[in-house]
């Protein structure tokens, strides 16, 4: 295995939200295979700064795969080629010497580009505001063990709750649909007994906001599931559909 790589990068550069963007090609040499993908971009940015070019803007924060800030469409794949992995955890040993890597921002009408590779994912927050919670004011909670929750139910909720809100599902979906994100939150809360009282208003509110934000529809392609770094399952989408139909057909609202 070669220890260093020479690479060609094609990076989407866009100075601002309303400016037009284009791909710019950069050459990088002697990239250690132990680097993470973002460290490789750090190296490029250092070189750009030295040359007097503005650095490439990209979102990142925890760099350990949990905050959901990093994004990037790498060679047409959300978070790059590995499954269950965020861009910050992707390492350069995954690439070959001489590779050309195309780096694009998440593309969706609901995620407008802010600059270069940075997009605005505020739509997700606005969806959560419309019901992605359990109304339990501070101080009003009963003892934590007062309602037993069977371990399998808890596990199902936890599987869904693992969503990191990165938006890879939207990015990977050919329709830029946010169904996996919304379904993960709805599943997490609606499978738990604590979440049952608000299950109808939750799903109705969140789906209405999702539609309002301009995300596409789910065509059951399952690309979202494959791209999801938290490995959220599309069975949650079925649950979301069920919850939504139940709420529409059975609730009094």
């Amino acid at each position: 295995m070669s220890e260093t790589l020479d690479l060609t990068l094609k990076v989407w550069r866009q100075p601002g939200p309303d400016a037009s963007g284009r791909y710019v090609e950069y050459k990088l040499t002697e990239i250690s295979t132990h680097m993470s993908f973002l460290e490789m971009l750090d190296v490029l940015n250092e070189q750009l700064n030295e040359k007097g070019e503005e650095m490439i803007a990209f979102d990142h924060d925890c760099r350990e795969g949990i905050c959901g800030a990093c994004s990037l469409m790498i060679n047409g794949q959300a978070h790059g080629p590995d499954s269950g992995t965020t861009t910050c955890q992707l390492h350069m040993r995954r690439f070959k010497n001489g590779d050309t890597i195309v780096i694009e921002p998440w593309r969706a009408r609901a995620f407008p580009v802010v600059r270069d590779l940075v997009v605005d994912r505020g739509a997700f927050d606005r969806i959560v505001q419309e019901g992605g919670f359990i109304s339990a004011n501070t101080g009003s909670a009963p003892d934590a063990n007062s309602v037993p929750i069977p371990a399998p139910v808890q596990e199902t909720a936890m599987d869904a709750a693992a969503c990191i809100g990165c938006g890879a599902c939207v990015a990977a979906c050919k329709n830029a649909s946010a169904m996996l994100f919304v379904s993960a939150k709805v599943s997490h809360l609606s499978t738990l007994p604590q979440g049952k009282p608000e299950r109808d208003s939750r799903v109705q509110g969140m789906v209405a906001q999702m539609d309002l934000e301009g995300f596409g529809n789910c065509t059951n392609t399952e690309e979202c599931q494959a791209a999801c770094p938290a490995e959220i399952s599309v069975s949650n989408i079925a649950r979301l559909n069920r919850e939504f139909l139940r709420a529409q057909l059975c609730s009094k609202e």
Partner: peptide, 9 residues
């Protein structure tokens, strides 16, 4: 419309 700009590949 939801994916108004498409990816390269």
């Amino acid at each position: 419309q939801a994916r108004h700009i498409s990816y390269q590949e």
